[in-house]
């Protein structure tokens, strides 16, 4: 019985992993395809579609996406940390209501948010804010709940006796935050910021409303391109984005060490 169960476990695990990775393998294969039709012929694989990415048509949206994701990630980290500190650490009056408010954007579909932001900007005569400023603001609305929640969780797990220990040793409030609290919640902070970065970098449903010509993020550029042609350069863009995101996660992990948080240990 036990063997049967463990057999079932491994089979379902493999199926799930295959379900996740096989489409990616197809995309990788497609990105190497020699002709402009997407085909599968390993003998003729070529890197020429990747070379084609080195044009401003693809580079400019990529740079814009990275710029927005970096700003969104930093702002979500700072705002999320401040909010989580007030709510989870200081337990300020109405902290539960504040947390609910911080999480509320999760309840609104992105398309609704997108329409609402566009309607707001147009009725307020702030059309010019579409493009980069609008994208940054919109993405922050989207990512802040994740960042705040993750940072709050790591603050809830923080042992307040450590703060007391530092206090009785003569550390002022600011010294305690800087030397004790921040280093110990760093994994939560960095995982929140990583989430914010990835959500912003990949976003389509909200960005679609907020881009303007000349200020278009990478995913929207891909969607637009797809309307007219479906050639392997799209696959190459996707593989390149995938590598970029994996590298980013790796770097954040190196800096923040948040796998410890995910695995429930501490470094």
């Amino acid at each position: 019985m036990n063997r049967l169960l463990s057999g079932l476990f491994w089979i379902s695990l493999c199926l799930i992993l295959a379900f996740i990775t096989l489409p990616l393998l197809v995309v990788v294969a497609a990105s190497l395809s020699p002709s402009s039709m997407v085909t599968f012929s390993p003998a003729d694989w070529t890197m020429k579609w990747y070379a084609a990415l080195w044009a401003s048509k693809w580079l400019d949206p990529f740079i814009l996406s990275v710029k927005i994701a970096v700003i969104v990630s930093l702002v979500s980290g700072v705002l999320g940390a401040l909010g989580a500190y007030a709510v989870a650490y200081e337990k300020c009056p109405g902290s539960e209501a504040i947390m609910a408010f911080l999480l509320s954007p999760l309840a609104v579909p992105q398309i609704v948010k997108g329409v609402a932001i566009v309607l707001f900007l147009s009725s307020a005569g702030l059309y010019t804010l579409l493009g980069t400023p609008g994208l940054i603001a919109g993405h922050i609305v989207l990512t802040l709940p994740f960042a705040a929640r993750m940072i709050a969780t790591s603050i809830y797990n923080f042992d307040k006796n450590l703060d007391r220990a530092a206090q009785i040793l003569g550390a002022s409030k600011w010294q305690r935050v800087r030397h004790i609290l921040l280093p110990l919640i760093k994994p939560g902070l960095f995982s929140g910021m990583t989430f914010a970065f990835i959500i912003s970098f990949n976003n389509i449903p909200l960005s679609v409303f907020l881009v303007r010509p000349g200020q278009t993020t990478l995913p929207i550029t891909v969607i637009n391109y797809m309307e007219y042609s479906l050639d392997p350069v799209l696959a190459a863009v996707n593989v390149a984005s995938l590598i970029f995101i994996l590298t980013t996660i790796f770097l954040f992990e190196k800096l923040g060490g948040f796998s410890a948080q995910i695995h429930g240990g501490s470094k």
Partner: peptide, 13 residues
């Protein structure tokens, strides 16, 4: 004042 805690409260980092 010095204080020794029951669970020690050493700074883990």
């Amino acid at each position: 004042i010095g204080l020794v805690f029951q669970n020690y409260a050493l700074f883990p980092h």
